[in-house]
């Protein structure tokens, strides 16, 4: 099915709840081609132009279409609005993937290493889910954790992101120069209006993690009224704090016997190091 408007798509999905909506298909078709997925029907969202752009709401919020491609988010006009999301989109994959892969697809696929996800978590973005004649608003993090999942017949249509007008940074570690899946990623956004720092760590767990205590602590170290400078030692401590909060001692432990031994596993030590460097650099860049 190739609906030409959002309403048509919502109707079609309600009529065939077993159908799978497909946008960029970069993850979905790979599963279909490999024989892991045999959808009863596909609803192609490519012709719904209204979902491929964004609009402003109440002056302080951007409403992003689920069909917004990574390539589009990387463009300068968008990068000026939500820099961290643009950073994540830029490094999400090779150009062929970024040209078709969409924001909504990234959320719906909910891969642990999905690059836009930690940014959306740090921005506390919400998603609009549509059914015929009704919509509901769910925080993206609730969708991802399964606290409030997508229900049958619901279509992810819009993503609401607050416009903070302050520095935001997304960094990922990949172990190569070419596009690759993140081994860890960190998003740091500043919210000067609320005098808050928000941070999310991606790829280390099935969903992005928020180190809330580290956020509160580091926000209290920042001189919000002045130059927003911070002691380099505090930046480093923030990195350690984030890493300790997001990577458990038992990370990648081989079975329960290793988990009960003293101290973190070697894998946990390595990953913490990576996360801490990323968080330190991200905060450093945001406050520069």
């Amino acid at each position: 099915m190739l609906p030409a408007s959002l309403d048509e798509a919502v109707e079609a999905l309600a009529a065939t709840p077993a159908a799978v909506p497909v946008a960029g298909a970069t993850d979905l078709m790979e599963a279909v081609n490999a024989g892991r997925l045999r959808p009863a029907a596909l609803i192609g969202l490519g012709r719904i132009t209204e979902l491929r752009g964004w609009r402003y709401e109440d002056g302080g919020t951007a409403v992003l279409g689920a069909g917004l491609t990574h390539a589009r988010m990387d463009r300068p006009d968008f990068a000026a609005l939500i820099p961290a999301l643009a950073d994540a989109a830029r490094t999400a994959g090779p150009p062929q993937v970024r040209n078709v892969g969409t924001l909504g697809g990234n959320i719906a696929t909910a891969a642990p290493a999905g690059d836009t996800l930690p940014v959306l978590a740090a921005l506390e973005a919400t998603a609009t889910l549509a059914r015929p004649g009704a919509t509901r608003e769910v925080p993206v993090s609730h969708l991802l954790t399964g606290l409030d999942p997508l229900r049958p017949g619901e279509l992810l249509t819009w993503v609401r992101v607050p416009l903070l007008h302050a520095p935001q940074v997304f960094l990922k570690a990949t172990g190569r120069s070419g596009p690759a899946r993140a081994t860890a990623s960190v998003a740091v956004v500043l919210d000067p209006a609320r005098r808050a720092v928000r941070c999310a760590v991606g790829a280390v767990a099935p969903v992005p993690l928020r180190p809330l205590e580290a956020e509160t602590w580091v926000a209290s170290c920042i001189d919000w009224d002045g130059s927003r400078e911070i002691d380099p030692a505090a930046t480093a401590a923030f990195g350690e704090y984030v890493a300790a909060a997001c990577v458990p001692d038992s990370y990648a432990a081989e079975g329960p016997w290793e988990a009960v031994t003293e101290g973190p596993t070697a894998a946990a030590v390595r990953l913490r190091r990576t996360v801490s460097v990323l968080a330190r650099r991200a905060l450093g860049r945001a406050l520069k």
Binding site: D87, K172, A173, T174, R176, S177, P179, L278, R281
Partner: peptide, 12 residues
């Protein structure tokens, strides 16, 4: 300058 980690990467 292309840093280790690639364009737009975490390189410092």
């Amino acid at each position: 300058w292309l840093l280790p980690g690639g364009p737009g990467g975490a390189g410092d």
